[in-house]
């Protein structure tokens, strides 16, 4: 009888292991769904590639946060893009499902730029001959700008889309405070959410947004609330950012409750690439939500002014805040498709 037991167990065990060893990479396809990993200086970062890789166009998602994940973009927000192109969902280090052992001490913007260099190199190797475009959102805008102005990195790409991208953190903070105060005065006059807007106005008019990380964090909190007061649809669940909520809990704990995480966040407060954007010559598409109080349209204007690209365009979406891909999905995808079709 015990031999039956052993046989059942061994067959089941081998079954699990063999399905685990199956090769995920399926080559170029009109409906790809594959994964590869990039390991770099203590972090193992998954890149899930979905959609039409046979198009030989790959859009690399450079997600926001920091600490979020790319999984949040793998739904309706990129559905049409995946039909036409391959979309690579990269989880940055200490974000999404990226893993590793003891690696928080290595979390820094220069390290993440280095990670991105490796990821783009791997994409170019893996999908030989493919044109790569960046889709950089929020914090991803800072990371992408840092990548593009470094050395000759931009030569690896056909173009980039910056979507409410924070390529200049100090400007984000000052513009956010200014936009909040201007809107607060206007909304109070209209009689909308008077006490809430008054709180925002009081805080922003009495605090210098550049003086500390705590103040800029509070302003960012008000910026998210302001979108709600202006009637912008929001998805506030952090659980949708990563495929596995346990991962997201680890990443958020690390960022907000450890000294290494806080040091990293504070180091970003002075990060700006505005004065180096002139180095970027590849086509640039800037997509912004009109009611983005977190990374206001002023930051998009700054990009348009400073970019060295011969083709650069800023599009404002009238029904959107910080996530126009959620609220003006079709319009955003139309702009991206037109851009890629022009420069692929």
């Amino acid at each position: 009888m015990k031999y039956i037991f052993f046989n059942i167990i061994i067959i089941f065990f081998l079954g699990v292991l063999f399905t685990g060893c199956k090769k995920e990479y399926t080559g170029l396809s009109t409906n790809a769904n594959e994964i590869f990993w990039v390991t770099n200086n203590g972090a193992d970062m998954p890149v899930r590639v979905m959609g039409n890789t046979a198009s030989k166009i790959i859009i690399l998602i450079v997600h926001g946060g920091p600490g979020d994940g790319s999984y949040d973009y793998a739904d309706y927000k990129t559905a049409r893009l995946r039909e036409k192109y391959g979309v690579a969902f990269w989880d940055q280090r200490n974000a999404g499902s990226a893993s590793g052992n003891s690696n928080m001490d290595k979390l820094s913007l220069p390290q993440m730029i280095n990670d991105m260099e490796v990821v783009v190199k791997v994409l170019k190797l893996r999908y030989e001959g493919a044109g790569v475009f960046l889709y950089a959102h929020s914090f991803g805008g800072l990371l992408a700008a840092g990548y593009l102005v470094k050395d000759s990195n931009q030569n690896q790409l056909r173009g980039w889309m910056e979507i409410d991208g924070a390529h200049n953190y100090p400007l984000c903070n000052t513009s956010s405070a200014k936009m909040l105060m201007d809107t607060a005065r206007s909304e109070i006059n209209k009689g909308n959410y008077i006490s809430q807007w008054q709180d925002i106005l009081n805080y922003c008019s009495s605090h210098d947004p550049l003086s500390s990380y705590e103040i800029s964090s509070q302003i960012e909190t008000y910026a998210h609330r302001a979108e709600y007061y202006m009637g912008i649809k929001q998805n506030n669940s952090i659980l949708s950012l990563s495929e596995d909520p346990s991962d997201q809990l680890v990443n958020y704990y690390n960022l907000y409750y450890t000294s290494a995480g806080n040091d990293f966040l504070q180091s970003l407060e002075g990060a700006s690439y505005s004065n180096q954007l002139y180095k970027i010559k590849i086509p640039s598409l800037l997509l912004w939500g009109q009611f983005d109080f977190t990374v206001p349209p002023d930051v998009g204007e700054d990009g348009l002014t400073n970019l060295g690209s011969s083709y650069k365009k800023l599009v404002l979406f009238p029904h959107s805040g910080h996530h126009p891909m959620e609220t003006d999905t079709d319009l955003v995808e139309d702009e991206i498709i037109n851009f890629i079709e022009t420069f692929k």
Partner: peptide, 17 residues
Amino acid sequence: RTAYDGKVYELDQDGNI
């Protein structure tokens, strides 16, 4: 002990993948 799905890439000392 984990083993990642798909291929795993890294940069070697010569800058090659």
